[in-house]
Computed example of a mutant assay.
Amino acid sequence: MKIIQKTAIFFTLSLALFFAFSITTYAQRGEGKHGKHHEERLEKMKEELDLSDAQVEQIKALHEKKREEMKKLRSEAKEENEERRAKMKAHHKEMKAEIDKILTPEQRKKAEALRAEHKDPEKRAEKRLEKLKSELSLTDAQASKVKSALVTKMTKMQALKEAAGEERVNKDERKALHTAFENELKSILSDEQFKKYEEIKAEKKGKHKHKKHKK
């Protein structure tokens, strides 16, 4: 009797693990690769648990049912995300329209120019470069290289923002871009200049934290 109970428990646990692992793998690897993996896993279960053909077919049917349920859940989640993005986009559009009503025609024109400038990596790079030239006393050769690094960073950041839509850019992707830029910057600057850059960055970060704390 105890042997039968142990066998039943083992079978139940193995089946549960099989479904948990298979469904997760499907989500990560895609349907084609998952199908092959599923067949291999099922074949192994058949050997280990001495499953009958009827049991194998039942497990296959159950797995297919669960797979379809997972696909439906992912589809519903995607629809919810798209709906949320649409609402956020409408909210931003409405906010812009309300602000435009408050501004004078001249102010609206200037605001549009600033928005266009903000979306242009080249112009944003030039603006940032002017500050770095003043802070770090860059040579013309250094300024040219720093501008190239800035344009690369800002172009990639713009692409990430466009891909994210109304959502925030992934924190890790943003950090990776910034790290790559600073590594390139370090290769352009002298040790003294880079040290000064880090000191200015730390000072700005401290002021920013202080402002947030006061709020």
Rank of each mutant, 00 (worst) to 15 (best):
159 A>D: 15
157 M>V: 07
53 D>G: 00
124 R>V: 04
43 E>N: 15
150 L>F: 11
29 R>P: 02
83 E>S: 15
136 L>C: 00
124 R>Q: 06
81 N>D: 14
100 D>F: 05
107 Q>W: 05
101 K>E: 11
121 P>C: 08
134 S>H: 10
170 N>C: 06
123 K>D: 12
110 K>R: 14
125 A>Q: 01
39 E>P: 04
44 K>A: 15
29 R>Y: 02
193 Q>R: 13
157 M>F: 07
86 A>H: 11
162 E>Y: 03
116 A>N: 06
145 K>I: 08
57 E>A: 14
149 A>D: 05
111 A>V: 03
196 K>S: 13
33 K>Q: 13
102 I>G: 06
139 T>K: 11
168 R>I: 06
179 T>A: 09
205 K>N: 00
60 K>G: 09
126 E>W: 06
154 M>G: 01
83 E>Y: 04
83 E>N: 11
36 K>Y: 05
126 E>V: 01
85 R>S: 15
94 E>P: 02
42 L>H: 03
152 T>G: 05
35 G>K: 14
144 S>M: 02
67 R>D: 04
7 T>P: 00
207 K>P: 06
199 E>W: 07
198 E>D: 10
97 A>C: 01
60 K>V: 08
10 F>Y: 02
173 E>T: 09
197 Y>D: 08
2 K>L: 15
127 K>Q: 12
85 R>F: 02
215 K>F: 10
140 D>E: 11
152 T>Q: 13
188 I>H: 05
90 A>P: 02
161 K>Y: 11
121 P>H: 05
172 D>S: 03
91 H>D: 14
8 A>Q: 12
106 E>P: 05
18 F>I: 05
27 A>R: 01
79 E>H: 09
208 H>C: 06
1 M>D: 14
66 K>A: 11
58 Q>F: 08
25 T>Q: 14
72 K>C: 08
28 Q>G: 05
118 H>V: 07
14 S>W: 04
128 R>Q: 10
165 G>A: 06
102 I>R: 12
173 E>N: 10
139 T>I: 01
71 K>F: 10
122 E>W: 01
177 L>N: 04
212 K>M: 11
139 T>D: 11
47 E>W: 06
202 A>Q: 07
91 H>E: 15
164 A>C: 09
212 K>F: 03
133 K>C: 05
9 I>P: 06
106 E>N: 05
149 A>Q: 07
51 L>N: 10
192 E>P: 10
192 E>M: 12
25 T>I: 08
209 K>P: 02
18 F>Y: 12
208 H>N: 11
121 P>G: 09
38 H>K: 13
213 H>P: 03
193 Q>V: 03
59 I>E: 12
172 D>N: 08
122 E>T: 03
14 S>H: 06
163 A>E: 14
91 H>S: 13
170 N>R: 09
143 A>H: 10
215 K>S: 00
177 L>F: 00
121 P>Y: 02
22 S>W: 06
212 K>H: 13
45 M>N: 09
139 T>Y: 01
189 L>K: 09
19 F>R: 00
145 K>Q: 15
49 L>F: 13
66 K>E: 07
77 A>P: 00
156 K>W: 09
183 N>E: 14
59 I>P: 04
39 E>S: 15
14 S>T: 14
2 K>R: 12
65 K>C: 03
7 T>I: 14
82 E>Q: 14
31 E>N: 12
32 G>Y: 09
